Amino acid sequence: MVLCSTALTVYFAFHSIGTVVVTTLACSLLLQLAYFASVLFLIWRSGCISRAGQRAEHLGSCWEVGPEPPDLDEATNESADLLQCDQMRAISLLLP
Score class of each variant (00 low, 15 high):
residue 63 W to E: 15
residue 49 I to L: 14
residue 12 F to E: 06
residue 1 M to N: 08
residue 48 C to R: 15
residue 56 A to I: 07
residue 52 A to R: 15
residue 8 L to C: 13
residue 46 S to T: 04
residue 86 D to H: 07
residue 22 V to D: 10
residue 86 D to E: 07
residue 48 C to Q: 13
residue 40 L to E: 10
residue 69 P to T: 09
residue 35 Y to M: 01
residue 66 G to E: 14
residue 72 L to T: 05
residue 72 L to E: 12
residue 27 C to F: 10
residue 32 Q to F: 09
residue 23 T to W: 00
residue 8 L to G: 15
residue 60 G to I: 14
residue 4 C to W: 08
residue 88 M to N: 10
residue 95 L to I: 12
residue 34 A to W: 09
residue 21 V to N: 04
residue 64 E to N: 09
residue 58 H to K: 14
residue 3 L to I: 03
residue 36 F to K: 05
residue 71 D to C: 04
residue 13 A to N: 08
residue 38 S to Q: 14
residue 47 G to T: 09
residue 5 S to G: 11
residue 92 S to M: 04
residue 60 G to A: 11
residue 34 A to Y: 10
residue 70 P to N: 09
residue 11 Y to K: 05
residue 89 R to V: 04
residue 31 L to E: 04
residue 83 L to C: 01
residue 39 V to T: 03
residue 11 Y to G: 01
residue 88 M to A: 15
residue 42 L to C: 06
residue 85 C to P: 01
residue 43 I to S: 09
residue 86 D to G: 13
residue 56 A to N: 07
residue 9 T to N: 10
residue 64 E to G: 02
residue 63 W to K: 12
residue 56 A to K: 13
residue 84 Q to L: 02
residue 75 A to S: 13
residue 51 R to V: 02
residue 4 C to P: 00
residue 77 N to K: 14
residue 83 L to W: 00
residue 76 T to G: 11
residue 95 L to D: 12
residue 9 T to S: 11
residue 19 T to G: 02
residue 24 T to H: 02
residue 13 A to R: 05
residue 18 G to R: 14
residue 24 T to F: 01
residue 42 L to R: 10
residue 47 G to V: 07
residue 49 I to R: 10
residue 84 Q to C: 03
